[in-house]
């Protein structure tokens, strides 16, 4: 079942807070309507609750786990892959067409290159998607556990390696490196001209 936008917003809150007030807040959002202003207000309030929980944990009032993507690693990896896919396809097709001599693909690439040159910010989106995909794929691998006992405070970083997330992350790095290398190779002769 696809979570509603309201449910996604409620996930921004600390779990304990959400379990206590989540249903009531969801009902209120349903009553007022979920406008951008309401979404911003709820997101800001959720950030405040997160900050309060963190302050409480560090002051000895409890524990706090920061790992918003920890519970659904596959979904985050697939979202990263979806964001990476257009750039990945472009890079693969470019290499095949222009580096490996698959000339049959050149007619396919020409309209794509023309479109990229004509649409503002399309190239920026193309370059920005691999780092964004890397962040999304890597987010579920980290969890921060803040605790404070009677005598000491601790912050434990929990790092795990999940095959799908690591694979997508590495793919994003490779695509990013190839793309940046390509851009630099293209720009150097132009600078020298």
């Amino acid at each position: 079942m696809t979570p509603s936008p309201t449910m996604l917003l409620l996930r921004l809150y600390p779990r304990v807070w959400r379990e206590r007030y989540g249903d009531e807040l969801a009902d209120l959002i349903d009553s007022t309507g979920l406008t951008p202003r309401v979404a911003f207000d709820v997101a800001r309030a959720a950030a405040n609750e997160r900050a309060s929980t963190a302050r409480l944990a560090l002051a000895g009032g409890g524990a706090m786990v920061i790992g918003p993507a920890y519970r659904h690693p596959n979904a985050w990896a697939l979202a990263a892959l979806a964001i990476l896919a257009p750039t990945l396809a472009f890079v693969c097709l470019s290499i095949l067409a222009y580096q490996l001599g698959a000339t049959g693909l050149v007619p396919l690439m020409e309209p794509i290159n023309a479109w990229l040159n004509s649409v503002r910010f399309a190239d920026i989106v193309l370059v920005a998607s691999p780092p964004l995909a890397l962040l999304l794929a890597a987010a579920p691998l980290l969890k921060l556990d803040l605790r404070r006992g009677e005598r000491s405070a601790s912050a434990v970083i929990d790092l795990r390696l999940l095959a799908l997330n690591v694979l997508v992350g590495l793919l994003a790095i490779v695509v990013s490196v190839v793309l940046v290398g390509h851009i630099l190779a293209e720009s150097v002769p132009q600078v020298g001209r």
Binding site: Y21, L25, I29, R37, D41, A45, N48, E49
Partner: peptide
Amino acid sequence: LGPGTLYGALS
């Protein structure tokens, strides 16, 4: 009041 502000204060 926004719903988030209201429930933040109420809690």
